[in-house]
Design a protein around this nucleic acid. Structure first.
Length: 558
DNA sequence: GCCGTTTTCGGCCCGACTGTTTTCAGTCG
């Protein structure tokens, strides 16, 4: 069992114990163990059992729980408490904005045991009767439920990716035994690298279409049901899977149509005429267009750009020369500054790392006060000597406070090579307030990059509303780079606004926000959405070479 | 349930903000 699973199990246990009003200090130590386990730089399963209780925050009791999990994959105490809690009440833990205390009242005082009932109660204005609940809380809960329901059956690209690749391999190996010369490809949202996936679509171009169709219902990994247009199923997790079987001769046309999006495909085919087509390239050629990458096929402005041969050369993973906005053990990261740097240098072959630990207001994340900023800078200077020509840039993720100011005085801010300014608190502002707050941060002369502009968490939290045009225009006017936070939950700035930012001359930066060496690989998701947004390497800050970005940071210094 | 011992049990305790209160509890990052 991985640390992450152990950590989640402990958090779950602590939440359930809160719902059953157990000793708050006991709960706290279990919740604390969740944080600790989540941040361990080694795998618990590789640790000798008798050393587990030596870990800080984990004593005899928790070590026993962890060992039980490692050895049996289960925890009796957890199973028991799950048995004493209605399923719907447990589900409520997934609603943003209410915690165990409020859920306890909803459950015990109001007698509500499911999310459906809770939603109904909001509509009936019944929540305000309970102590600690008012109109605003009721409205918040109602909105949060609606957001959660809308996320049902929808998944992050990154959640689907592993399953999709495994399935693809299974189908492709199976096809060799059934129809050895067939063609195969992903289509739909997945091929277009959409940030949210609610349907995984796969197309088979079969030589012997009847045979493949006959056999497909016996394909073991899925229990497929033959529908009118495709073979369908829903995975245990709730993801719909559709497999289309077409004649090999029609494959490229059908693949193109099913890749979509429908509006894009329809417009291109109107220009290209009827097939057959030998490949997708031919479709675009016959339409008088340059080839349009799947990521761009969203019926935005890509067809006009292709007509004028003005499509951007989309950025790729290989274009990235460095990684900005990452954390270390100085704040809430798992790996040390040196480990993070060496990983970038030796494993990722990057030229530079920007380290941006949390600023002092983020106490929960061990944010750096002025003295520790100075200490970190000393360590960076030493490491830069040791690792040269690789370079660590002195950055900070400075909290944007509620009034829009940054978290340090100008004297401190000027000691950084660059500053990522982001919002972490007071996330419930309306559009006018949130926009004004960001504008003030953008206008701060020390702000280099605006971090995750809306604070959204895909499928989980909407993020505060902002006036995108005002924000982007201000970034253009103040030479502030906008982050594409590459965490698959964020992907913020949204790709639908990349084009506007690029038109205004704003640079974008694909930042993994890594809290451990593994986290650097999230960059991949940032690149995918940046491609959807139409980003080319020359407009991406961390595609600059070390020399170019050094000059850039120097030019921005006050 | 963990920690740190005055070695056997008492203390443990982010801060800001919001909404619901009438002085505070719950939630968040």
């Amino acid at each position: 069992m991985e640390n992450k699973t152990i950590a989640r199990t402990l958090r779950f246990l602590s939440q359930l114990m809160e719902l059953h009003e157990e000793n708050p200090f006991k709960i706290k130590s279990i919740a604390n163990a969740y944080f600790k386990v989540d941040k361990l730089p080694f795998a618990l399963k590789d640790k000798p059992i008798n050393e587990i209780d030596q870990i800080e925050g984990i004593g005899k009791g928790l070590a026993a729980k962890i060992v039980e999990l490692l050895q049996t994959g289960e925890l009796k105490e957890l199973n028991d408490i799950i048995g004493q809690t209605p399923e719907g009440v447990i589900e409520m833990l997934g609603i943003k904005g209410i915690g165990p205390k409020k859920i306890l009242i909803i459950w015990r005082t109001l007698g509500i045991e499911s999310i459906g009932e809770l939603y109904y109660a909001c509509n009936e204005n019944r929540l305000i009767e309970a102590k600690g609940f008012g109109l605003k809380t009721q409205e918040e809960i109602k909105n949060a439920i609606e957001f959660k329901l809308a996320a049902n059956g929808r998944f992050l690209f990154a959640q689907v990716e592993g399953y999709a690749n495994t399935l693809f391999t299974q189908i492709s190996e199976w096809l060799i035994t059934i129809d050895n010369h067939s063609l195969l490809g992903f289509a739909g949202q997945y091929r277009r690298a959409c940030e949210i996936i609610d349907e995984l679509e796969i197309v088979i171009g079969a030589e012997n279409i009847e045979h493949v169709q006959d056999q497909l219902t016996f394909f073991k990994p899925l229990s497929l049901i033959a529908g009118e247009e495709a073979f369908m199923t829903t995975t245990e997790a709730g993801l719909r899977v559709k497999i289309f079987v077409v004649n090999k001769s029609d494959f490229y046309l059908e693949w193109f149509k099913l890749t979509g999006n429908p509006e894009h495909a329809e417009k291109v085919l109107k220009l290209a005429g009827d097939g057959p087509f030998a490949n997708e390239n031919e479709i675009y050629t016959k339409a008088g267009l340059s080839f349009i990458e799947p990521e761009l096929r969203e019926d935005f402005d890509e067809i006009e750009l292709a007509k004028a041969d003005k499509l951007p050369v989309l950025i790729t993973d290989k274009d990235l020369k460095g990684s900005l906005h990452n954390h270390s053990t100085w704040s809430d990261g798992v790996h040390t500054l040196e480990q993070m740097a060496v990983y970038c240098k030796d494993v990722l072959n990057l030229e530079y790392l920007g380290i941006c630990d949390h600023s002092k207001t983020a106490v929960y994340a061990k944010g750096l006060n002025e003295q520790r900023v100075f200490g970190q800078h000393q360590e960076i200077d030493e490491l830069n000597q040791k690792l040269a020509p690789f370079k660590i840039f002195k950055g900070i993720e400075s909290d944007i406070l509620s009034d829009g100011s940054l978290d340090y005085s100008d004297d401190v801010l000027k000691t950084f090579d660059f500053v990522v300014a982001s919002v972490h608190s007071n996330l419930r502002m309306d559009e006018a307030k949130a926009t004004a707050r960001l504008l003030k941060a953008i206008e701060n002369p020390y702000t280099t990059i605006l971090g995750h502009p809306t604070g959204r968490l895909l499928l989980s939290r909407a993020g505060y509303p902002i006036d995108y045009k005002k924000i982007i225009d201000a970034c253009a006017a103040n030479q502030v780079v906008i982050e594409i936070n590459a965490n698959p939950l964020r992907l913020d700035l949204d790709w639908r606004w990349h084009r506007y930012a690029l038109e205004k001359g704003v640079l974008l930066s694909i930042n993994p926000d890594a809290h451990r060496t593994d986290g650097f690989h999230d960059t991949r998701y940032g690149v995918l959405v940046a491609r959807k947004g139409g980003l080319s390497a020359d407009k991406c800050l961390n595609a600059f070479s070390l020399e170019e970005i050094s000059k850039y940071f120097d030019s921005r210094k006050r």
